Amino acid sequence: ESIRKLFVAARSVEARSLEINPLVLTKSGEFVVADCRITIDDYAVARHPELGIEIAREFDHPPTALERIAYAVEQNDHRGTFYFAQLATAAAKGSKGLVGFHGAGGGGSMMSMDAIVNAGFTVANFTDTSGNPSASKVYRAARIILAQPDLVGYFGSGSGVASQEQYWSAYGLAKAFWELDLDIPAVIRLGGNTEDRAVDILQRMSKLLRAPVEGYRKTDTPAMIAGRFAELVESAGGAKWKPRPPRVPKFVKDPSSTMFPVKNGCVWIDTAKWPQIRSAIETHSGELIVDHAGAPATSLPSEELATKDSELLACDVESRLAGLEGFYLELDIPGLDELIGGTR
């Protein structure tokens, strides 16, 4: 009878597992459940509001404010996956420092976490962006990782054989690093499709930053790049990250600027500079943004353009790398700037 009730209880909430431990036999001969753990299927949580589950994640703690923000990002963009969990807010005794971790692919991410821990660091968070994520999702993941204070560096490494275009991830990281004016070292291993292009993007962006950003390929082992990361952190002389809002160009939200909405954000173009930047923007955007009667316009209907946020993010980064001012992709991360405090 107890087993039958256990099955009914599990099925009623679409549980993936239900564990009773211990099951106590009293002196009177009755069985009593002394402790129980139920794991609900992530995709079933929305169908069971009575359970009061705020985030469909298997955390060992109540969700933090940053985890809530990250979960909302995942819920608003299902292109690829984004998992974020905070692990430590201070470096362990004897550690070389607290590290922001960004993985890609579960197994490879775990191996990479082991490598950075073996190099003497404390991991502040576990993050995974995989399954061919949009550049916008990777950008938001990086922004959330860098909302954690006292990091000594940013370490990114995944499976190394991911069947996804690595340059999208590189563009997302490059945009986040520039906007936040990164001043702690970053080592990023982007192994997989188009890894050479991805490494080139990071190397070019590194020249615009105050701290080194180094890109690596699948042939570079997690242990090797963890060792290199340790060298860069040591060279930084104990610098620690202070979370900050992103740099935003002055023409953003100016009434005279041109704005086009995209998924969870918008493109801003300095209309006054359009004649000077027109040719480059048309090229870098793949002619998603074109000229019409001397003013910026879109080549697609608004509903189609809204899905091209990754391509427009790439245009944002390439324009920045070319030294062009006048184009900016604004991507919303509700609650993040308020959590950090203030705007630039």
Rank of each mutant, 00 (worst) to 15 (best):
L173R: 05
D128M: 11
W168D: 01
D114Y: 02
G153L: 03
I145K: 01
V117Q: 11
A91K: 06
K93E: 15
S109H: 03
K137G: 09
P149L: 06
A90Q: 13
T127W: 07
Y139T: 09
S163W: 00
Y154V: 14
N118M: 10
A176F: 06
M110I: 15
R140V: 10
G172H: 01
K96V: 01
K175N: 12
R143M: 14
A92D: 13
N132H: 13
S95K: 02
A142T: 15
F155K: 04
A176E: 08
Q164F: 04
G131L: 14
S159K: 08
G94I: 02
M113N: 00
Y167K: 13
G106S: 15
Y171C: 09
H102G: 04
G108D: 07
I145F: 00
A104R: 06
D150V: 06
A119N: 04
R143G: 04
V99G: 06
F101V: 07
F101I: 02
S112W: 09
G158E: 05
S163G: 00
Y154G: 09
F121Q: 00
D114H: 07
K93A: 15
A90Y: 08
T122V: 03
Y139Q: 09
F126H: 12
A174R: 11
S169A: 11
G94A: 05
T129Y: 13
G106E: 15
L146S: 06
S169P: 00
I144R: 07
S136Y: 03
N118D: 15
T122S: 04
K137V: 13
Q148I: 15
P133G: 10
E165W: 11
V123N: 00
A119L: 06
G108K: 07
D150Y: 08
G172I: 11
T122G: 00
A142D: 08
N132I: 13
V138P: 02
A90G: 01
A115P: 05
V161N: 12
A90L: 08
T127D: 09
I144A: 03
